[in-house]
Nucleic acid binder design. Structure first.
Lengths: 199, 199, 199, 199
DNA sequence: TATGAATGAGCGTTCATTCAT
DNA sequence: TATGAATGAACGCTCATTCAT
């Protein structure tokens, strides 16, 4: 055990530097916002050299991916802790904080969209991973809740994500801003999860 | 009279410059792609000064908006010429060329997402207009086709757009590239437009 | 005349900016030295944007080439104004200021060596040009002075340059610093221009 | 005794590491060239840490000095094995391989110029040593060959070196590349060693 | 001696956009 | 309208060298 600790003494230092950089970045984001983050400021607060920054993160976006991913993960943690929702309203309420965050800054939303996928397997970032997690959570909810049984919980989950994105995207579009994100999202989910078919 | 005389040739010249710039841009896009377009190259091919470019287009994105909007309009023209679709498969086939274009370049997709709405009412651009047109076309189709009558054709149309975007977005995410865009889109549309509810 | 002035109104502005940058650089060099010059400082003194600097000069060295070349040219101007030297001592005296300058900073000497030639015709810089001028001046002197008539003045000139470089180079080499540049240069020139052959 | 026992294997290991580093460097130089050599690559091929590199060599140039010095020494070995030259042509032929090497890369030439002397007496490097050796060889040749007796063999030797450098330097200057290095060197040497003075 | 993360100053780049003529 | 030089705020990079373990 102790030996293992001693074999990688650098790792501790590396981890510390990395943590310093990330917390410096978070500090800036808390004080201002994501868009206002400058690499120069991060390293100056973290008391680190520029070279060190780029040794830890491929570029500024890579750091953003980590921080945003972490935030989303925190929302998902809370979400997971909730009792399995029974109604669409429950789902909406559960997702509200995450939706608010994603819609908080156009810059953040754009980044999430851009990083929701990866060009290559080895480029899967934090944000991309959270999307997978989101699906998993939704799937388990939906299999318990039994909204629809004509389609798989997975497909239902993907639909929910599509509508979530759509609702947020339309918020950034002034043409449609008469309606709140949640109202629109609610509309979509009702139509998606509770279709009423007349025979 | 005289005034008219002096104005006309000027307008002609203006239009010519504008056309030059647009065709220069198209040339670059054909040779390379949308992302590779640089204002510098456009004006060099159009043999124009940089200032002239910005006298004709508010910014680079405005030019992009015009060119992409024009392309989308052409697809919608073809789409409109088709007989009103009766099946989901008809809808998918009708939209395929447009979907292919939107998925051709991540840059184009991002731009379309960003410009699907306009930041301000007075800035409704070409792309935003085509989205409206798309909705209108879909609405008329859906009111004739009678897929679902529990929700408005407008909502149905919005859902289709959400799923179209989702299908394309997941294409840019290698994690899900086992499935083609159209297969996924088809899956979504069936679930969206033909929900089968057991009682 | 006036028309010509009006056709290129930009050129004046361009020239002014360029002159600003160069004089800012000279200011720094005068205050400190060549090696101490920082692009950042130049633009800050010239009140110019960084982009402007690199629009005018390919890189920092290009600016150095111009300034050093200008300085060498000034020395050559003085040199040309002198009466044609009759003795080796005259030549040494004439060249002394230039030699002193070239030996003033290792950085300068290295730069001169590096830029004395050009990789391509279109890259002939100021320094490279001064070398040609130096040869021309020396040639004319040597054809009048008649030190040696077994070899062309051009060859004599090239030899003088070779020895000048050698004398300076050895100055930067502590192993040989017992002797002054000029003493060594003098030794060389006597052996080169006044060989005494016993028969 | 015991101490010796413990020291020897360590020394062996040290020498092995050093040899590894040098051979890794040579590998890179053979594959690419001197300029392309990066410490990073050397240690990666030698499977060594960066710190180890600098424990063995004061700096990167120290390694270069060793490798280039070794190469020059090999040329001088061959040169020394030759019979004492009687003609200028003999000298030229003898030096040709060395001249070719020095002219092979601008980077190498610059480094040789810079290191032909040493900044401090205690830093006399390999290259500087080879220059001394070169002079010694030339001196012995020249005292036997009796080209000129108005100046010392040492001065003659220095002149030859000056002209060798000049010939190579002009090769790096495209303006004069009509003539080969050796042709120019030959011209110089004839004028230097065999001046014909009319009385 | 070996390790390798951290350093760090400065350079060059990017390129859409502005503005004085 | 047309011109094109100037802007400018980051970003990313370079890479030999240092230093604590």
């Amino acid at each position: 055990m102790q030996k293992k600790h001693m074999t990688k003494p650098q790792q501790k230092r590396t981890l510390k530097t990395r943590a310093n950089l990330i917390s410096a970045a978070k500090h800036i984001i808390d004080k201002d916002n994501f868009e206002a983050l400058r690499v120069e400021d991060v390293i100056s607060i973290a008391r680190t050299a520029k070279g060190t920054f780029f040794a830890h993160f491929k570029d500024k976006d890579a750091l953003m991916d980590i921080i945003i991913g972490e935030k989303i993960d925190a929302y998902l943690d809370n979400l997971e802790a909730l009792p399995s929702p029974k109604t669409i309203s429950d789902i909406l309420n559960a997702f509200e904080p995450l939706v608010q965050f994603m819609a908080s800054e156009r810059y953040v939303f754009d980044l999430i969209i851009r990083y929701s996928g990866a060009a290559q397997i080895d480029q899967i970032g934090h944000i991309a991973t959270t999307f997978g997690r989101q699906t998993t959570i939704l799937e388990s909810w939906l299999s318990e809740a039994n909204f629809r049984n004509d389609i798989s919980p997975e497909l239902q989950a993907e639909g929910i994500q599509a509508f979530m994105i759509q609702a947020i995207a339309l918020k950034f579009c002034e043409l449609h801003n008469s309606q709140s994100i949640n109202d629109r999202f609610s509309l979509y989910l009702n139509a998606w999860l509770k279709p009423i078919i007349a025979h």
